[in-house]
């Protein structure tokens, strides 16, 4: 089983100023699975993702990716990691000054030795995959929120990563775009065989796309299990979160800085 673990968080601690986000977070992610991390706003779900590619550093603890300790790598050493792990940012984070095609080509230029035609071919291919063919010349400002996310995904998968991280992929989208993105997450995994980490507070989305669900609560992963295990869980916090009962609040029970 241990061989199947591709990503490990061990004893990770992180605080921003006096605000403690994690106090000993542990999680193993298996190769090829889709795991969803759920938790309320401000519980630091995105921080987990950013730590995995070294955009943020933990104050203590370790993060491992495929046998290499990410937390011990310098900025240059992180480049191969970032080549293998792609991230879809919450607001898509497309570069406003570049066209759709240039956005998607960006990681290709950085990471791969491809000529102009190969890049154009790859752009076409990923745009087809996200269902938006022929919009190479458009600028991000001309796109709707849902389209931006899909282009963000196209940019993320352009380098054929092994892991894709989705930061709140369905937040702020209408129901049709939400289900479109959910389908894309499932389809991308089938097409590319990637490991997917989804961070969300959208339970419908979590149940739809995941193999396993982990719940971030009280500054650590408080519950983790398969979709059916989590949906049958009798843990009070898990139940209140997945059922959306008001009893749940990120600050209950009161959190104190250690």
């Amino acid at each position: 089983m241990a061989d199947d673990v591709i990503i490990s968080y061990r004893g990770v601690k992180k605080a921003f100023g006096g605000n403690v986000i994690y106090d000993g977070l542990d999680l193993d992610i298996l190769r090829g699975e889709t795991i969803t991390v759920i938790g309320g706003s401000g519980t630091g779900k995105s921080v987990m993702l950013k730590m995995l590619i070294g955009l943020l550093r933990p104050d203590a603890g370790h993060v491992w990716f495929d046998g290499a300790e990410v937390t011990a790598l310098h900025e240059d050493g992180l480049i191969p990691v970032r080549r293998r792990i792609a991230m879809l940012f919450q607001g898509a984070a497309l570069f406003d000054s570049l066209t759709v095609a240039e956005n998607i080509e960006y990681p290709l230029r950085e990471h791969m030795k491809m000529n102009h035609d190969e890049r154009a071919e790859r752009v076409r291919e990923v745009l087809d995959l996200v269902g938006l063919p022929g919009i190479e010349a458009m600028k991000p400002a001309e796109l709707s929120g849902g389209m931006k996310k899909r282009i963000g995904l196209a940019r993320a998968i352009a380098v054929r990563p092994e892991v894709i991280m989705y930061d709140e992929p369905t937040t702020g989208l209408d129901p049709i775009n939400t289900s479109r993105i959910n389908e894309l997450i499932v389809r991308t995994r089938e097409a590319l065989g990637v490991t997917s980490i989804v961070v969300t507070h959208d339970m419908a989305s979590a149940f739809k796309v995941s193999d396993r669900i982990a719940m971030l609560f009280n500054r650590r992963i408080s519950a983790v299990g398969t979709v059916s295990e989590i949906s049958r869980s009798d843990d009070e916090m898990v139940r209140s979160f997945i059922e959306g009962r008001p009893a749940y609040s990120p600050s209950f029970p009161p959190q104190k800085a250690p």
């Binding site: 590619i53 955009l55 970032r82 919450q90 984070a93 570069f95 960006y106």
Partner: peptide
């Protein structure tokens, strides 16, 4: 808008 994070995430400085 996390574009600077995106530059880093896409392998550039």
């Amino acid at each position: 808008t996390e574009q600077i994070d995106a530059v880093r995430a896409l392998g550039a400085d």
